[in-house]
Amino acid sequence: MRQSPLFSGIIYIILGALFTVFAIQDLQQNGEWGFFTYLLVLLATFDIGSGIRMILLHFKIKEIKKEQKK
């Protein structure tokens, strides 16, 4: 059974939020922007962007399937 893009998109967004929380905690502990903080923000950006794209893909596939049934 294949995973739906909606499920994958939600997982990506959750991971992006988690990386954002880790970046905020790292920034609060160190008091400055270090390499690790930038890395976490970069990962969060990629994950949230991928999550949004996967969710949009889910709705596009759903729309195409709906048009094919007509």
Rank of each mutant, 00 (worst) to 15 (best):
I11M: 05
I11A: 08
Y12A: 04
Y12H: 08
Y12L: 05
Y12S: 02
I13M: 05
I14G: 06
I14L: 13
I14D: 05
I14Y: 06
L15Y: 08
L15G: 06
G16K: 00
G16C: 02
A17H: 07
A17S: 10
A17Y: 04
A17F: 08
A17V: 07
L18K: 05
L18T: 09
F19H: 07
T20P: 01
T20Q: 10
T20H: 06
T20S: 09
V21S: 10
V21E: 09
V21P: 04
V21T: 12
V21A: 11
A23C: 01
Q25D: 06
Q25Y: 08
Q25H: 07
Q25R: 09
Q25M: 09
D26L: 07
D26F: 00
D26Q: 08
Q28H: 09
Q28S: 13
Q28G: 10
Q28V: 10
Q29M: 05
Q29K: 10
Q29T: 11
Q29W: 05
Q29L: 06
N30E: 10
N30Y: 10
G31F: 04
G31K: 03
G31N: 01
E32H: 08
E32C: 07
E32G: 03
E32R: 07
W33M: 14
W33H: 12
G34K: 02
G34F: 03
G34R: 01
G34C: 03
F35T: 05
F35H: 02
F35K: 06
F36S: 07
F36N: 06
F36H: 04
F36V: 08
F36W: 08
T37V: 10
T37W: 03
T37L: 05
T37M: 01
Y38H: 13
L39D: 04
L39E: 03
L39V: 01
L40E: 00
L40I: 02
L40W: 01
V41N: 03
L43V: 05
A44N: 00
T45H: 02
F46T: 06
F46L: 11
D47C: 13
D47A: 11
D47E: 13
D47S: 15
I48L: 12
I48S: 07
G49H: 03
G49R: 02
S50K: 10
S50C: 10
S50N: 13
S50D: 14
G51T: 07
G51H: 04
I52L: 08
I52Y: 06
R53E: 13
R53C: 12
M54F: 15
M54Y: 10
M54G: 03
M54K: 13
I55C: 01
I55Q: 04
I55V: 09
L56F: 14
L57H: 11
L57S: 14
H58R: 07
H58W: 09
H58N: 12
F59T: 04
F59K: 03
F59Y: 11
F59W: 11
F59L: 05
K60R: 13
K60S: 11
K60L: 12
K60Q: 13
K60D: 13
I61P: 04
K62F: 12
K62A: 09
E63P: 06
E63G: 09
E63W: 12
E63C: 06
E63H: 10
I64P: 07
K65M: 13
K65G: 09
K66M: 14
K66N: 14
K66G: 05
Q68S: 15
Q68M: 15
Q68R: 15
Q68N: 15
K69A: 14
K69Y: 09
K69H: 13
K70D: 12
K70M: 08
